[in-house]
Computed example of a mutant assay.
Amino acid sequence: MWLAYPIKEQIRITDMYSFFEVHFDEGYEFPGEAHNFWECVYIIEGDACVSGNERVYNLTHGSIIFHKPLELHKFIVTGQGGADFLIFSFSAEGPMMPSLEEKVFELSDSQRSIIASMLSFIHARAERMPTPPTGYCSYLEPFQTLPTYSQMLALYLQQLMLSLIEAGEVSSVSSAPDAVIFRRAIRYLNDNIHRQPSVPEIARYSNVSEASIKRLFDKYAGIGIHKYLLKLKMKAAAELLQNGESVSGVAERLGFNSQSYFSRAFKRETGLMPSGLKGNPP
């Protein structure tokens, strides 16, 4: 008698939003953003300073970072000659996805081979697609015309992520003085997320001037302190809503003047209504 061994799917990519290779010159700054799906940045060549929420990393070729949904992320190209990136964003589900949160991996030779095989597969098919007038060719265009393309791409990515979880090495966060101060300031914001701490208060806690703390948020987050705090509140709100908290309760816990104002802010920042998120992942 044959026994059936069920496949326990640990990671499954459900949607892709972007997938492209790009070169940026030294000094290029990608402005901070946050969205309700995952984003991955892989350094093909060069060096970059990458931030994800309060964490700051100095990455080089072969490094890959995963930004979880609603994580504010930004990068600055620091290497001479610029840097080449592979960037893709996606939605995924499965019990192993949290293992990719707040981590940077240094790829092994076998993991780089997965990416090389994936790019070879993509290039052979994407080059068949007409290049638009802008000169930008999205690697997602074949989704519309090649029936097997999307699943093959998902399989490559799932293989890569499972391999990283199983054997990848994690990079340490930057110990640069500015990065340490930035993390300290973010911890203070998280500890006081129920209210609206002022810029002078945050600067005093971080032992720097108001001008310095504003500069650090611009450097590592690409947005002002109050905007960053709002995004932290939205992230906390999403987690509370997922855990069954009422919309009115979340608004009160996070220091919003009214439920309606909270709902408008949540919709503006996440693209979702808080009532639609209750009990569901962002």
Score class of each variant (00 low, 15 high):
residue 228 Y to A: 04
residue 229 L to W: 00
residue 193 I to P: 11
residue 237 A to Y: 01
residue 106 E to S: 08
residue 115 I to P: 03
residue 41 V to T: 10
residue 104 V to R: 00
residue 116 A to G: 10
residue 175 S to A: 13
residue 9 E to Y: 12
residue 78 T to N: 06
residue 242 Q to F: 09
residue 28 Y to V: 07
residue 236 A to M: 08
residue 144 Q to F: 15
residue 54 E to P: 10
residue 109 D to V: 02
residue 120 S to A: 15
residue 171 S to P: 02
residue 161 M to K: 06
residue 178 D to A: 11
residue 42 Y to W: 15
residue 243 N to D: 13
residue 29 E to S: 10
residue 57 Y to N: 05
residue 259 Q to E: 11
residue 42 Y to I: 05
residue 97 M to D: 00
residue 119 L to D: 06
residue 26 E to P: 07
residue 88 F to S: 01
residue 86 L to F: 15
residue 61 H to K: 15
residue 86 L to M: 14
residue 216 L to H: 04
residue 157 L to Y: 02
residue 136 Y to I: 14
residue 120 S to G: 14
residue 123 H to G: 10
residue 110 S to R: 12
residue 165 I to E: 00
residue 79 G to R: 05
residue 202 I to M: 10
residue 251 A to Y: 06
residue 275 S to W: 13
residue 173 V to T: 05
residue 220 Y to E: 00
residue 271 G to T: 12
residue 50 V to H: 04
residue 68 K to I: 01
residue 269 E to K: 04
residue 154 A to M: 14
residue 73 H to K: 06
residue 97 M to H: 05
residue 96 M to E: 13
residue 224 G to I: 07
residue 203 A to G: 11
residue 211 A to S: 10
residue 215 R to I: 06
residue 192 N to I: 07
residue 264 R to C: 09
residue 149 Y to P: 11
residue 168 G to Y: 03
residue 109 D to I: 04
residue 10 Q to K: 12
residue 167 A to V: 01
residue 126 A to W: 04
residue 189 L to A: 11
residue 115 I to A: 02
residue 165 I to Q: 02
residue 254 L to T: 02
residue 221 A to V: 00
residue 146 L to F: 15
residue 187 R to N: 07
residue 221 A to D: 01
residue 166 E to H: 15
residue 277 L to M: 14
residue 171 S to T: 02
residue 9 E to K: 12
residue 195 R to N: 07
residue 193 I to L: 15
residue 109 D to E: 11
residue 244 G to I: 09
residue 157 L to A: 03
residue 175 S to Q: 15
residue 36 N to T: 09
residue 155 L to N: 12
residue 41 V to S: 05
residue 126 A to D: 06
residue 237 A to R: 01
residue 242 Q to G: 11
residue 57 Y to L: 04
residue 101 E to M: 05
residue 275 S to K: 14
residue 217 F to D: 00
residue 231 K to T: 09
residue 63 S to I: 04
residue 276 G to W: 13
residue 130 P to Q: 09
residue 239 E to I: 08
residue 225 I to F: 02
residue 161 M to Y: 10
residue 140 L to G: 09
residue 210 E to S: 14
residue 214 K to W: 06
residue 189 L to G: 09
residue 194 H to S: 14
residue 274 P to A: 06
residue 13 I to H: 03
residue 136 Y to H: 15
residue 93 E to M: 04
residue 97 M to L: 14
residue 215 R to G: 09
residue 219 K to P: 05
residue 125 R to L: 13
residue 41 V to Y: 07
residue 171 S to W: 00
residue 25 D to T: 06
residue 174 S to H: 05
residue 184 R to V: 08
residue 157 L to E: 00
residue 247 V to H: 00
residue 157 L to G: 05
residue 184 R to A: 09
residue 71 E to L: 00
residue 252 E to F: 12
residue 160 L to H: 03
residue 139 Y to H: 12
residue 125 R to Q: 12
residue 172 S to V: 11
residue 160 L to R: 05
residue 166 E to T: 14
residue 121 F to Y: 12
